[in-house]
């Protein structure tokens, strides 16, 4: 498939190239919407399409107005600040609980492993609207609805499956004899954990944490129900903006978020390679 053999018939050649064109079109479908909004966000006017000036590459047709609005308008700054306050706390909780549990789960004799795993993974499987409904009902009963703590707990619960999955995957390749060696040299379990095990599983923990972070940072359904106006996050503000009066500032926000996701994607990819190299699974 990677290249055309010299003896290929005309039909095979036609198919080979048309298949590539089809794939190219699908890649275009995948990536074009994300790419298109980037130039649109520099539109000097309040339009959602390319103005004639933009197509003519007239510098006057481009501007940073929408970015200026994002960085000065309290309607956007307050949600940004809320997101920045909520996501790291939720991530911290998911990573702390999740890593501990993943280490427990990777021991060789865990009773009810299947059932425990199913419960821990369940926040990822249950549709968000159902989690949101349940949390809204239950958190209103116990007075957590509409509080910062409620949103953090809800987001931590949603992020935990990602931490569990990535950290257990890392632990699969972990060589148990290393902890035994450390113990035989006189280290207590805590020292062994922090000096031997932790550095080795750190890539998995960090990428699990990044997943948890992006889950919380992107999440809108649960916060919409569990939170109140005081916890309005960036995605929530975008959701309102898209539903009610759509303002071009959304495109500027979207562009910034795309840049953040590219940064996160790169980090996760680098960590994955490092982790695989450490475990000797691939030359990377």
């Amino acid at each position: 498939m990677s290249s055309l053999p010299p003896y290929a018939s005309t039909g095979q050649k036609v198919w080979f190239y048309s298949f590539r064109v089809i794939c190219g079109l699908i890649f275009f479908f995948l990536i074009a919407p994300i790419i298109t909004i980037i130039p649109l966000s520099f539109n000097a006017e309040d339009f959602f399409t390319f103005t004639p000036g933009m197509l003519a590459l007239d510098p006057d047709a481009y501007g940073l107005d929408h970015y200026r609005d994002f960085f000065t308008n309290p309607d956007w700054q307050q949600p940004l600040w809320n997101s920045v306050r909520i996501a790291p706390m939720a991530t911290l909780l998911s990573v702390a609980f999740g890593t501990l549990a993943a280490i427990g789960l990777s021991q060789s004799h865990v009773p009810f492993k299947g059932a425990i795993m199913a419960i821990l993974i369940s926040p990822m499987i249950v549709p968000l609207i159902i989690s949101a409904a349940g949390m809204y009902f239950f958190y209103s009963r116990i007075g957590l609805q509409g509080t910062y703590l409620g949103v953090v707990l809800a987001h931590a619960a949603l992020g935990i499956p990602f931490v569990i999955i990535t950290v257990t995957a890392t632990l699969v390749g972990f060589d148990k004899s290393l902890t035994r060696a450390s113990a035989s040299l006189g280290a207590d379990p805590v020292t062994t954990f922090f000096k031997v095990q932790m550095p080795l599983i750190l890539p998995g923990v960090i990428s699990g944490g990044l997943f948890a972070f992006i889950t919380s940072f992107d999440e809108v359904v649960v916060v919409l129900f569990v939170g109140s106006a005081g916890q309005k996050t960036l995605p929530w503000q975008m959701f309102i903006g898209l539903r009610e009066q759509i303002s071009p500032t959304i495109l500027a926000v979207a562009t910034i978020l795309v840049v953040i996701s590219i940064a996160l994607l790169t980090t996760v990819e680098l960590l994955r390679r490092r982790s695989e190299r450490l475990r000797g699974m691939s030359p990377g």
């Binding site: 501990l100 021991q107 369940s122 349940g134 707990l153 619960a157």
Partner: peptide, 30 residues
């Protein structure tokens, strides 16, 4: 083995409790 099982469960317990309160109980409530 029992000691190992208990250790494993003790490591899992905090998270299990956390998920039960923040997630499973809400679903049950629904």
């Amino acid at each position: 083995l029992r000691a190992q099982k208990i250790r494993a469960l003790l490591l899992i317990a905090p998270l299990l409790l956390f998920i039960l309160i923040t997630f499973i109980l809400p679903i049950a409530d629904m």
